Simulated assay, not measured.
Amino acid sequence: MFGGLGGTEFLVIILIAIFLWGPDKLPKALANLRRFISKARNMASNAAADLSREIGTDIRPEDLNPKTFVRKHILTEEDQEMLTNPLKSTMRDLQDGTKPLQQGLTDATRDVETTRRSVNRGSITRGTNGSAVPAAEDAAAPAERTRGRAADFDDVT
């Protein structure tokens, strides 16, 4: 609802504020809080404008991260290219090296899909215990499958 606060948390904060300041002083306390937040925002924007004016470029709050600041204001574009080119060439080499693996996986996936389609067409049916069994074998030995399962349940008690 309000920056990560849910309805119940917001309601609890309002109730605590009413108990602390009382219903008659709460509007004045909220007005003071609003003024404080407004002044803090103005101070922050003025500080960013002063910093921008001193440095000579436009500064945004996300630019104040030291890594971003160095990258933007100290390194030239040539320096940035020099730093990123080895990474780009390594990435290209890695992509070229994995192309045969990717092609092999694509072929294997295609083979699995072909097999799955042929299985779903009826050459193999589901057995009585849920396993895939050829249709002729499914009808031939139902007693053998149930005998194995019954033996498993004898030791339960």
Rank of each mutant, 00 (worst) to 15 (best):
A140M: 05
T98D: 09
T125V: 13
K99G: 12
G122R: 07
V112C: 11
P61C: 06
V133P: 09
N120L: 10
I124T: 13
E137P: 05
G104E: 13
R149C: 06
N85S: 14
R116D: 12
L94G: 12
K88F: 03
P61K: 05
N129V: 05
G130N: 14
E78Y: 01
T84I: 04
R110M: 07
L94T: 09
S123Q: 14
L51D: 04
T90D: 09
L101D: 07
T146P: 00
A139F: 01
E62K: 07
I55T: 07
R126T: 14
D107W: 00
N120M: 11
T68V: 10
P86C: 11
G97C: 05
Q102I: 03
V70Q: 04
G97V: 00
P142M: 04
G97Y: 02
A140E: 15
T109M: 05
A139V: 08
K99C: 02
K72S: 03
T106P: 00
D50G: 12
A143C: 07
V119S: 08
T90G: 08
T128Y: 03
R149D: 14
T68D: 09
E113F: 00
A139E: 12
R116P: 00
A143L: 10
T115K: 12
E62D: 14
N129Y: 02
L87E: 15
P86R: 06
G97S: 13
A140Y: 04
S131L: 11
G127T: 06
D58I: 03
Q103P: 06
D79M: 01
E78W: 00
R147D: 15
V70L: 03
G127H: 04
M91H: 05
E144C: 07
D93S: 12
